[in-house]
Each structure stands twice: as C-alpha cells, then as structure tokens.
Design a protein around this nucleic acid. Sequence first.
DNA 1: CGTTTTTGACCCGCGC
DNA 2: GCGCGGGTCAAAAACG
Length: 260
Amino acid sequence: MDTSLGDNSFSIDLNTNLSLHNTNTSPRETLDEELIRMREENKKLVTMLTNLCENYNSLQTHLIELLQKYSTHNEENSNLLLTRKRKAEEECCVNNFEEASPKRPREITTNVSTVCVKTNRSDQTSVVKDGYNWRKYGQKVTRDNPFPRAYYKCSFAPTCPVKKKVQRSIEDPSILVAVYEGEHNHPHPSQTEITVPLVNQDVTTDPTFSNKFMEDIDTNSLQQHLVQQMASSLTSSPTFTAAVAAAISGKIFEYDLPFK
DNA sequence: CGTTTTTGACCCGCGC
DNA sequence: GCGCGGGTCAAAAACG
C-alpha cells in the first residue's frame, strides 16, 4: 500500500512556532512549555499513525489469507454436489488468473475475478460503479437465481476484451455480485465514482465469492476517509482547538508587534 | 442523430 | 441425438 499515511514524514503542523516579542518571561515560559508539549504530542500522533498503518497492512494481509483458505474449503465441499460444468465455473471464480477450461476454446486465457458491492435496497438497478464505462449487451434470468443477470462489455470494446456479469445475490438482494473477465488494456478512465466493495458475512458465505475483491478496494478513498476521521477526531478535541487558536493568535500577534 | 439499453432469437457446450 | 441452460447477437426502442 503506497500511502502517505505510512510515510513517517506525515505530521500535523500546528504552526506553534511562536516567536513573540514579549519580554515578559512568565507568559513566554508558559508558551514555551506549551510548545514543547505540543511537539511531543505531535511526535506521539505521528508514531500512532505509523503503527495504525502497519496494523492495517498486517490485518489486510491476514484477511486475504483467511479468505483464500475459506475459498479452498468451499471448493472442496461443493465439489461433491456440483455437476462438472458448474464445478468448472466455480473453479474459474475461486482461482483468479486461471486459464479458462480447455473445453471452451472460444475463451482464450482470461482473468476472472468476483466483486461484491452493497447497494441500497431501493436501488433496483444492477450498476456497479467501478470507474470504467460499460455497455450492456444482454440480460438473462438464470436457473439458480431469480434476479436477472446483466452482461456488460467495456465501452472500449473491441479494443478492450473485458466483460462483466452483474447479478444480485440470492441470499441478500442488496448485494450485487459482479464477475469480471479479462484485463483492461487501457488506463482507468475515472477514479471518482468508485463504490467500495463490501466485506460482510453474506458475501463471504457465498461459495462463488473470490478474495480478489480486496484488491479492488480503492486505496485513495480509504486514505481520504482515514484522514477525514483523524481530522474530525482532532478538531473535536478541546485541547487541540485551543492549541490551534493559540497558534493562530500568536501568529497574528507576531505580525502585529514588530512595529511597536 | 448518435449512443445506449432492451429483449427475443440464436448459438454452442454439456449431460443424459 | 436431443434438450437444457448460459452466453451472445442484433433489431427495435429509448434516451440525451
């Protein structure tokens, strides 16, 4: 995860470097002490943030490992029940970047990944906002799911071979299951309208669910969210706002005084 | 008027 | 060989 959050250089500059031209020692000493205290607090915050990033990374790695194990387990169980055809589909979904079945020569090597997206129950559309532009070319009601399956091609087709199938989960209709086939051979057109894929129990109990969704989580929006959370928690602290107010007033004071 | 979506028809692989 | 089911095509409709 290449992130500025993991960068130790990230610091909260409170602009508390006050250089007051006040000769009164006692308020200055107080301010100096306050300044030292704020710097230490700043250091602590940086350390905490670094640890937080490290913990997040290790947790993410752990989650991916668990999902991989879970997928393998489901594959073994379902092998007893599924027909050969459906089993082949299952394997295709569980194992990403696996070659397509040799019995289907029309599909050359395709990368298959599954992404689950939480939507509003009132939203009946089957649109998964992933930043790419798609053109719908078909819709079909399948045997094992009453919700229609929509077929999309990348709008860059035929240059871009990527297709996706979108269908609501039979277990939880508020979840859209999108199956992507192939890799885009063009840059991502937009990073602005990405729906963060969902991690919940309904999704992980779906045997067709793939761990690939973790890679599709937009790291930029996650970073923004974390920064916003940290900013709000800091600004909600009375000591922090007091320190900022002191820093700003001190700065104003600095600009006012030299001519006195 | 160009683009996208809808939808019925068709194709093809698989199982019996 | 036949039927079933999933995937794709393509004409018509809808949309901006």
